[in-house]
Design a protein around this nucleic acid. Structure first.
Lengths: 210, 210
DNA sequence: GAGCTAACCTAGTGCACACTAGGTTAGCCT
DNA sequence: AGGCTAACCTAGTGTGCACTAGGTTAGCTC
């Protein structure tokens, strides 16, 4: 009795995973990329609080301890994922717009921006659904601040002299309106994908044209 | 040793609360109202997931078991609070607007709407910060649907014949823009109270005038 | 082919939270 | 005054989560 195997044998475990691809070992960078992709999907769809580390690890094909060899904590993983996607969006704005806005470049940027949303719907949810206050909110605010400064700078240079942008507060409110329209449409669109990008962009541009 | 009091005496407990008002017993409706007020504040400020039942009960001056004599569960409490505030906002729209929009009544409504936000900042956070998907999101969607239908109906009656509102999707996108502007400004404003209501309303009206 | 590193695992720990069982007492009613 | 109801409490239970200790093995290097 006592001599019968007391722990599950290796062969048994391997048999269990026979139906799934035979569990390969990945290099650290590749595994890290899969973890970030899984985190984007799950945090985007379920929110920071509900997306558990176990679930993210499972979606990345591993278990929680392996995830902790790549990221020191859940907030750190969240920050890394936010950083990467916000940087992509900032690049979109920067490559198409100089110091101030011109009508043509704005249309270009908005279209490119919605292209990114179209190709990364879970990232859009992750970035634009504001997290509940707490740990996650502080990180989100810190990371998104850089993007906010970028757009605020462009708005300042463009709108100086116009009536509604005469004070810092009005400038910030203009930014709030801009963000509200774009993020609102983006979050609506990712749940209504049959609508074409052109139509969403048209509504956005019409709402933003004063 | 063993004979020394093993449980805290009643008098000792009463002495502890001597600094705070001497713990009155309230009637059920009054206590219920305080629980709802505490829930509005805490869920608004911290979000559904982070605001614990213990914290809400403490803010209402009681302990968790008493709260459960008034509300059967945390989701039920959340729904009750949402219902009450959404109903207030619907009343604001309904008393000032008939079947379709006229420029003057819209300005009136928007001003009254922001008055409510001004007087109930925590309610604004509770209503307009979309919760992370999960239990809370389903309830929020269900409760807010009635308000959405109300505004969508008014929009339909008003905009029929205009170009951008020609399809159901465009109508819904118009609603998304409207909501994005109002909610975005409201959430920004409750964190920047020194700005006067008139200025916020002015920005909102300018953004919504096509 | 032997050894080593690092990718991966199982099996926990501790904590915070929603919710409950069962007892105590304030304060009204007669 | 004495009794009764309902408002309130303490002290739990169970669950789910972030995070970890310690061991196993794939697969590269020599």
């Amino acid at each position: 009795m006592a001599s019968v195997s007391t722990s599950k044998s290796t062969s048994e475990r391997r048999r269990l995973s026979a139906s799934t691809p035979p569990r390969r070992r990945l290099s650290a960078p590749e595994r890290r990329a899969r973890i970030e992709a899984a985190a984007t999907t799950l945090i985007g769809q379920r929110g920071y609080g509900v997306a558990s580390i176990d679930a993210i690890a499972a979606a990345a094909g591993i278990t929680a301890p392996v995830l902790y060899e790549h990221f020191p904590s859940k907030p750190a993983l969240y920050e890394a994922v936010l950083q990467s996607h916000f940087a992509n969006l900032r690049a979109i704005w920067r490559t198409r717009i100089g110091d101030r806005l011109a009508a043509s470049s704005v249309a270009d940027s908005v279209d490119a921006w919605f292209s990114y949303v179209e190709e990364n719907p879970d990232a859009a949810r992750l970035l634009f659904r504001e997290p509940a206050p707490g740990e996650a909110a502080a990180i989100h605010r810190a990371v998104s601040a850089e993007s906010r400064e970028l757009v605020l700078g462009v708005l300042t240079a463009t709108l100086e002299g116009r009536r509604l942008a005469s004070t810092p507060e009005n400038l910030e409110m203009t930014w709030v309106v801009l963000r509200g329209v774009l993020q609102g449409l983006a979050l609506w669109w990712v749940d209504h994908p049959p609508v074409s990008r052109d139509r969403v962009v048209a509504v956005a541009m019409s709402a933003l044209a004063h």
